[in-house]
Amino acid sequence: MKKSKQIIFRSLFSNDHFNLRAQLEIIGLVFIVLIVSMAMLFYLSYSVNHEDKQVFKKYADNELGMSYATVFTKTSICGTEMSKLLEDCATTKRIVCAGGLNSCETLNKTIIRLLSQTLDKWDKAYGFTIRWTDSPLNDDYTSNWQVNGENAMYFDNEKWVYTRRNCTEETTGIRRAPGISPIPLGMTGDTITVEIGMCAQ
């Protein structure tokens, strides 16, 4: 009787039986590893797909750029509008403002004041550009507009461009769609455009 029991247990714990159990356990382990891997994959895909869309920031930046350009050109200055002063600066420079400053000097002074009290104060990264397309070169403007290092006046294929700060890839990333306010230059067909765009941060 005792012998027969021993035989039964020997057969139960024979090599084949152990191999089968081991294989089943390995399958179970693989199954668990698969479940854990799938959970990790799910978590990763979830966290990647759920980035903050910054809906309001995009809207606020676009609205800010657009309104800034429009309001800037409409503001009264020197008994006229900013757009007229820009036109005068680009053409005849006949308008003389307070302190005996001409239109270009007044514009530059006002732009610096406005930006320092608004976008600079709010710590916004932006690009401010006034562009006159198809204009003749005029060296006089360079001395008037370049007041400090931040301002830049450069000529590019007979067009002048005034910039005050700009978006760079290293610091502020890509510029959002800028607010543009075009000013037609009399009967010449030329246009001065005021562009203000916030940098995507």
């Binding site: 609205e63 800010l64 309001v71 409409k74 503001t75 009264s76 406005l114 608004t118």
Partner: peptide, 22 residues
Amino acid sequence: GKQTQIPVVIWNPLTGKRAFGV
């Protein structure tokens, strides 16, 4: 509170002058 800034023209209808406001 999140602050938003929007530039606006402040118009005086008596003088006709337009100020730069926010």
